[in-house]
Design a protein around this nucleic acid. Sequence first.
DNA 1: TATTGTTATACTCTATAACTATA
DNA 2: TATAGTTATAGAGTATAACAATA
Lengths: 162, 162
Amino acid sequence: MIDYTMDDTEVHASTAARGAMAEDALDAQIGYNLRRASAFALNDFAVELADAALRPVTYGMLALIDERPGIRAAELCRLLGMKSANMAPLLAELEERGLVERDDHAEDKRVRVLTLTPAAREAMPRWRQQVRRHEDRFLHRLTKKDRATLLRMLRLIWTDED
Amino acid sequence: MIDYTMDDTEVHASTAARGAMAEDALDAQIGYNLRRASAFALNDFAVELADAALRPVTYGMLALIDERPGIRAAELCRLLGMKSANMAPLLAELEERGLVERDDHAEDKRVRVLTLTPAAREAMPRWRQQVRRHEDRFLHRLTKKDRATLLRMLRLIWTDED
DNA sequence: TATTGTTATACTCTATAACTATA
DNA sequence: TATAGTTATAGAGTATAACAATA
């Protein structure tokens, strides 16, 4: 059993003097550190995928369409936690760039069915490799075991399953 | 030496068919899950602190000024990872709302020295309690030990120390 | 009536550039 | 020259509202 109790000497003098707990320090808040870590990773992603002109959101869309070819736009929204109002212009951009195809559904005329173009399918392995490099870079201080633990905990935060 | 080979049974059929590794699945990427978890927490923060009209960024500013009264604006920027160009209007907003005081530095006339107003100092304990409630809510599926581990790993991602 | 997808619009956060006042 | 702070502006992400077409 590991003891994670905060050492009182780590409490900033001025906060302790006013009775605020170490638990309340901004540095001790997971939400704050989650936001900083996410911002750090987003920034690193932008650097690594700059030449591909892919941002985390657009890469996520491509990756999921590649994993589930023929997926509906509404389903893509649901899986990525996006509003369809925000998805529409991004799909238009990816279609314009020749990466995504939007086809009519056979039975339901409201539905748009999504697939990657051959060009995008061909590029995906290289983009995936860049993402792997990006992850290895911003996670370089975490062991493989750490990373698996982190992944599990992050999923516990935002998903309902497991 | 640890074996990091992915179990083939976890590979989604359609991706495995095209030779993509499970490691490459969007769901398996820490960056993606970090972004989703952070977005989830940000949203929950907004709900909990809506009545106080505080967002994560403005709360962070108040919390740090409270921890380090008399801090310089430039130092606040550095600690929070913000550009001074973005900090300025937020400080103006908080001053306008009677929460922050901006005073001239005694020796260096360029510097603005920041303190909480008595009203803000009085309100901080309630806001801190709301933040604790928020953290307990979005982290309810993580044990205390999990949370300490998560905190450590998030810091390893975005900070240089430790 | 409900769902799919779209357009329009607004807000927050972040980024760069240009500027001033001061060191 | 360099630093502290400000203003202006633009981009990316996300939110709601309103709408047309279809189920």
